[in-house]
Simulated assay, not measured.
Amino acid sequence: MTFRYRIAGGAAEVSAAQSALAAWMEAAGASLHSVTRAEVVLEELALNAQRHGGALEVLVEASIAVGLCTLVLEDAGRPFDPTVGVLPLPAASLGAARIGGLGLALVRRNAAALRYTRTGMGRNRVEVDLPLC
């Protein structure tokens, strides 16, 4: 059983994709915690592809097997590997915290595995294994 969705718009379309993914995961018996985790990762990666990578569309696939939900996102935006790069250090206090810039940390923290490839067709492909609990 595989989930497929084409995001061809901004934040509203990403939200629709999240809702569709949530319904699909719930029908497959995933817990609310697992669904929420997948929604957060989908939102972060899809919006980054659009806002920072210039992607006009993001193709999303998901599958569930052996305790994992694997999300695959593909886009033709600028190359960006979310598996590399230094993440910001946590703020010393809430008052010192800055807004934004923590999305990739959320993706990495929630993922059991995170893989990136730039395909021969000039597409970014991000695969995220999310534990089901």
Score class of each variant (00 low, 15 high):
M1W: 11
F3Q: 02
F3R: 01
R6D: 14
E13K: 04
E13R: 08
E13D: 14
S15I: 10
S15K: 14
S15C: 08
A17C: 13
Q18M: 13
S19Q: 15
S19D: 15
A20E: 14
L21M: 08
M25Q: 15
A27I: 10
A30P: 07
H33A: 15
H33F: 12
S34M: 07
S34R: 08
L42Y: 01
L42I: 07
A55Q: 03
V60I: 10
V60C: 09
V66F: 12
G67W: 07
V72F: 02
V72Q: 12
L73A: 00
R78P: 12
R78W: 12
F80D: 10
D81C: 02
P82I: 03
P82D: 04
P82L: 00
T83Y: 02
V84N: 06
G85W: 03
V86R: 07
P90A: 00
A91T: 04
A92T: 11
S93Y: 00
G101K: 03
R108Q: 09
R108I: 10
R115F: 04
Y116H: 08
T117I: 13
R118C: 04
T119N: 03
T119C: 01
G122R: 11
N124E: 09
R125W: 04
V126D: 03
V126G: 00
E127D: 06
E127S: 09
V128P: 01
P131T: 12
L132I: 13
